[in-house]
Every structure is written in structure tokens, then in C-alpha cells.
């Protein structure tokens, strides 16, 4: 793969773009200059730090360390998703299992197929992509599940009263929530290349990869996001719905 480099002086000249934004804010009295400056400084510090961390990790080439890093990312994503679903019982554990299952299956298939190698420079960015996508998807699932169990209480209680177990009583709500979690991924898939040139492809093209080569990676990314989202959404909804019932199969 070609490698792209950039001079520090080029980057400094590019920083004029920040002044353009701050100039607009100043003349339009938007009072966003301070916020913009803080944002820019934070972005520079955070990205520089990440750059050094990744440089260090990529240099280690230790599969155990790579796995530990993926687990760390997984925990953070699970924690974040569980905060989205505050009324979900055992939200952290369910999120960890669901995102973990999606990530494990997808990474395994990609590694077995030879699409990627279990090397930190490939595993870390790809895990980041799929884990964050799964995190957003199950956050949406939780939101929908909580709202459905609040608004469709009558449907669930009617089915329970007919002698249905908790799964047939909640199946419509579960399906609805899985769909909600998966739709953004499916929608963005439909507009790939038409509305936007997605991140992976843009990055590779900027780094000098031929567009026809770059699309192969983008197609792989599309497949892996789809698989992780569906596994995570399915697993999260099927594990989480039980928490809306007590041990006597009554709605909480």
C-alpha cells in the first residue's frame, strides 16, 4: 500500500481554515470564537496523543496486547451504550456480550477469509469502526425497546392475559427495536458512493491508493458493519427484553 505524508508547514498553512471559521463567528457576532478555539486545541492534543499511542501499539506486534486493546475498546463502547439504555437491566453486561459477539464473529470471518491480518495496524482501526457502529446501533435498539415497553404496554399485557409467554408477548417490540438499530446502517449502505464517498475509501484515495482498489476495502467495511450491527442488535434486544418482566412473568 502507498503511504501518504504531509509536511508540518502544509498543516500550518491549512490552519488558516480555522481562522476563516473564527472570522465568520466574529463578524456575525455568533460568539463561537472561544468554543472553536477550545475545540481545535482539543482535537490537536487528542489526535496527537492517539497518534503516539497507535504508533507505540503498532510497534509491539503482540496479538495478546492487540486483543487487550480491543477488549478495552469493547468495554468503553458497552459502558456508553448501557448509559443510553438506563432502564435496561444488566445493560452493561448485555451490551458487552452483544458488541463482543458482533465484533468476534466479524473479525473472525475477515481474518479467516484473509481479508485482514491479525496485526494491530489492521485489527485496531477495523475494531474501532465495527465496535463504534455496534455501540450506536444497540443504543438505538435500547431507546426503541424502552419506548415500546412504555407505549405498547396494552399489547404486551393483552397477550400475557391470553396465556402467551413473555417472548410471543414481546416479539413485535423486539423486532421493531432490532429494525431501528439496523436501519441507519442499511440506509447509509444504499447511498454509498452516491451521497458520500465513505471514510475508508476517502482515506485510502488520499493515501494514494487507486480508486478501484479502495472500493474493495470499502465493500469489505460495508459487509462487516452490516454483520456486526445485525448480530449486536439481535443479541442485545433478545437479552434485554426479559428485564422488562419479573420472575412471575408480569410487566415491571
Amino acid at each position: 500500500m502507498n503511504t501518504a505524508t504531509m509536511n508540518v508547514s502544509s498543516l500550518l498553512i491549512a490552519s488558516v481554515l480555522v481562522i476563516v471559521s473564527m472570522g465568520f463567528s466574529y463578524f456575525q457576532k455568533l460568539k463561537l470564537e472561544k468554543e472553536t478555539l477550545i475545540g481545535v486545541i482539543r482535537a490537536i492534543i487528542q489526535l496527537t496523543a492517539v497518534g503516539y499511542v497507535l504508533n507505540f501499539i503498532f510497534g509491539l506486534k503482540n496479538p495478546l496486547f492487540t486483543t487487550m486493546l480491543v477488549l478495552f475498546m469493547l468495554y468503553n463502547a458497552a459502558y456508553n451504550a448501557s448509559k443510553r439504555g438506563k432502564n435496561i437491566r444488566n445493560g452493561l453486561l448485555i451490551s458487552f456480550i452483544s458488541i463482543g459477539a458482533g465484533t468476534a464473529v466479524t473479525l473472525s470471518i475477515l481474518v479467516i477469509a484473509g481479508a485482514i491480518k491479525y496485526e494491530p495496524y489492521q485489527i485496531v482501526p477495523i475494531s474501532g469502526m465495527i465496535i463504534s457502529n455496534a455501540m450506536v446501533a444497540i443504543g438505538l435498539c435500547y431507546k426503541q425497546l424502552i419506548s415500546d415497553f412504555k407505549n405498547k404496554r396494552d399489547e404486551v399485557e393483552t397477550k400475557l392475559s391470553l396465556g402467551a409467554d413473555i417472548l410471543p408477548s414481546s416479539i413485535n417490540l423486539i423486532r421493531d427495536s432490532i429494525k431501528t438499530g439496523m436501519l441507519p446502517t442499511i440506509d447509509s449502505m444504499k447511498t454509498l458512493g452516491i451521497v458520500s464517498l465513505p471514510g475508508t475509501m476517502t482515506g485510502l484515495i488520499l493515501a494514494g491508493t487507486a480508486p478501484l482498489e479502495a472500493i474493495k476495502f470499502q465493500i469489505m467495511v460495508t459487509f462487516m458493519l452490516l454483520s456486526t450491527t445485525s448480530i449486536a442488535a439481535f443479541s442485545a434486544c433478545y437479552l434485554a427484553y426479559k428485564g422488562f418482566f419479573n420472575e412471575r412473568k408480569q410487566l415491571r
Partner: peptide, 17 residues
């Protein structure tokens, strides 16, 4: 689950799904 099959309950506002 078995109990609710023996004791049927019809709500004030019927919910048809």
C-alpha cells in the same frame, strides 16, 4: 402462563393487535 390460559381476562378497552 398456564394459569392465564385458565383465567381469561377481557380489558375495558379492547386491544386488537
Amino acid at each position: 402462563v398456564n394459569l392465564r390460559k385458565d383465567i381469561a381476562y377481557c380489558f375495558q378497552t379492547p386491544y386488537l393487535f
